[in-house]
């Protein structure tokens, strides 16, 4: 289906990657840790390594969660856009094929969240 309109109705997407000054927008979600109330959207240069993105942007943002300091990033499990994913943390986002507006879910099964309840 599409918009019902009297005339032509076509517009450029507002969030195309070319509008982000060389960055891509990447979404990060910590699975089953909803004390962090929503996933993060961060703008990152595609040449940045995934490890640097995590250390500079994600680690400080989740530090208030008591499980955060227990994360072993080398054993974290990942999903990208809901598919199992095995990134190389020391490779760039581009080399890991992280694209604009992708959804990266990091899963820490041994960390059960606040009250062991997934919070």
């Amino acid at each position: 289906m599409s918009v019902i309109a009297l005339g032509p109705y076509e517009f450029a997407p507002r969030d195309q990657v070319k509008n982000f000054h060389g960055n891509i927008l990447v979404n990060f979600c910590w699975d089953r840790h909803v004390l962090v109330s929503a996933p993060f959207a961060v703008a990152l240069p595609p040449a940045m390594t995934l490890r640097e993105a995590i250390m500079t942007r994600i680690v400080p943002s989740i530090a208030f969660h008591p499980d955060a300091e227990k994360i072993d990033w080398n054993t974290v499990q990942w999903e990208k856009d809901h598919q199992p994913w095995q990134p190389d943390l020391d490779k760039s986002l581009a080399e890991n094929k992280v694209g604009h507006k992708d959804y990266l879910l990091f899963i820490t099964p041994e960390l059960k969240g606040l009250n062991n309840a997934g919070l």
Binding site: S37, P39, G118
Partner: peptide
């Protein structure tokens, strides 16, 4: 201080969980 992911339609940050699963953030693309 880090900005949240927004829903393209309702524009609310993705703070809602899957129906019936209150610890799983709901995300679609």
């Amino acid at each position: 201080g880090t900005l949240p992911t927004l829903c393209t339609t309702c524009q609310i940050p993705l703070c809602f969980t899957e129906p019936g699963d209150p610890t799983k953030i709901s995300h679609r693309e």
